[in-house]
């Protein structure tokens, strides 16, 4: 999508492995955008395909925890809003798969890799959505964290990814607001409703902070992909900076909601000009990534079933298109004769 430039990148002259073409570096140095048929290091291309695919997978798997509540939304208004949000997630997945395809990836291959567990999606979707208030907490916290992560990607060095993210970010802001509104109503409702809202926030707060990934500044900066991604202009800020930004934005919002965040160490630090917060227990996140989260199996099984159950519809559409094309061809031949 977003300008395929209409040559499969497989047909491009493959650069030497490990080499950085001068034209590529010149575009990066000028803070320009790399477009699909430009020369690029093979590692840059592969890294982007992996990142964009994981992002796309997250969008479509992310339809499940919320789709779970469409039939039980408390009003027609809430139901319509939730359906629109889940449709958006599907759309975001499609924008991103198309962006990955501009790098020479094949969407069917990417889906295969999701279905066989060779590519991951965001671990946040492996947590269950237990109450209606979870729809609020997901919109406010999970989508809120996603926005903080995604806004810098609108300036990512790869043009098609950046353009996809501009669309995604525009649409996400409604997601976060509708979540905030759900929690605001519950929090100012009956005692039981307030407790439900608080319980949801208590469960989603720490997983939302983990969405930014492991610590990658200070001593941890030498590990992982952050330094390389920053050199390539794919990543603009460290995980820790983005997490801090999210905390700083969210704490005052929680006060307006009349809800507390489950961290006894959370307090304003005048010296730093930021909120301090407690240490994150990543052992749980790593368990979830390994596949031991509460919903890993269910999410993937549901996705695979949906894909397999839909095979007949895809085949029927292809057969219909083929038949129409044949008839059209016959009519054209008859006209000529």
């Amino acid at each position: 999508m977003y300008g395929n430039d209409f040559t499969a990148s497989r047909q491009q002259a493959a650069p030497e492995p490990g080499a950085t073409p001068a034209s590529f570096q010149a575009v990066l140095d000028a803070d320009g955008r790399i477009e699909p048929r430009d020369e690029m290091p093979e590692a840059y291309r592969k890294n982007l395909i992996r990142q964009i695919a994981q992002h796309a997978h997250s969008e479509i798997i992310g339809m499940q925890p919320e789709g779970n509540w469409i039939s039980r939304a408390p009003s027609l208004r809430r139901k319509a809003i939730l359906m629109a949000k889940v449709q958006d997630e599907a759309g975001h997945g499609l924008y991103l798969y198309a962006a990955a395809e501009t790098l020479g990836a094949d969407r069917a291959d990417l889906l295969d890799m999701l279905h066989s567990g060779r590519q991951k999606y965001s671990s946040i979707f492996n947590y269950p959505t237990q109450t209606w208030a979870d729809m609020g907490a997901i919109g406010w916290l999970v989508d809120g964290a996603a926005i903080v992560n995604q806004v810098p990607l609108c300036r990512c060095s790869y043009g098609p990814y950046a353009r996809a993210m501009v669309r995604v970010c525009k649409e996400e802001s409604f997601h976060q607001r509708q979540g905030f509104e759900i929690l605001h109503h519950l929090s100012h409702g009956t005692e039981a409703q307030h407790a439900m809202a608080q319980d949801a926030v208590d469960r989603w707060w720490w997983p939302s902070l983990m969405m930014f990934g492991p610590s990658d500044s200070g001593e941890a900066a030498s590990n992982g992909h952050t330094a390389q991604s920053m050199a390539w202009g794919i990543k603009r800020f460290s995980n820790d900076d983005l997490r801090q930004r999210f905390v700083d934005m969210t704490v005052p919002q929680a006060e307006v909601l009349g809800l507390t965040l489950p961290d006894p160490d959370l307090r304003w630090n005048d010296e730093r000009g930021h909120y301090d917060f407690g240490e994150i227990d990543f052992t749980e996140l790593f368990e979830v990534i390994k596949g031991n989260g509460p919903c890993n199996h269910e999410r993937l099984a549901h996705r695979v079933n949906a894909h397999e159950d839909g095979a007949w519809a895809r085949e029927a559409a292809a057969a219909y298109a083929q038949k129409q094309a044949q008839q059209q061809e016959r009519r054209t031949t008859e006209d000529v004769a």
């Binding site: 999508m1 977003y2 198309a98 996809a164 895809r314 559409a317 219909y320 298109a321 094309a325």
Partner: peptide, 13 residues
């Protein structure tokens, strides 16, 4: 203006 791409079996779809 070009906005993106998609997969479809035929033009109507």
């Amino acid at each position: 203006v070009h906005v993106g791409s998609l997969h479809a079996a035929d033009a109507a779809m």
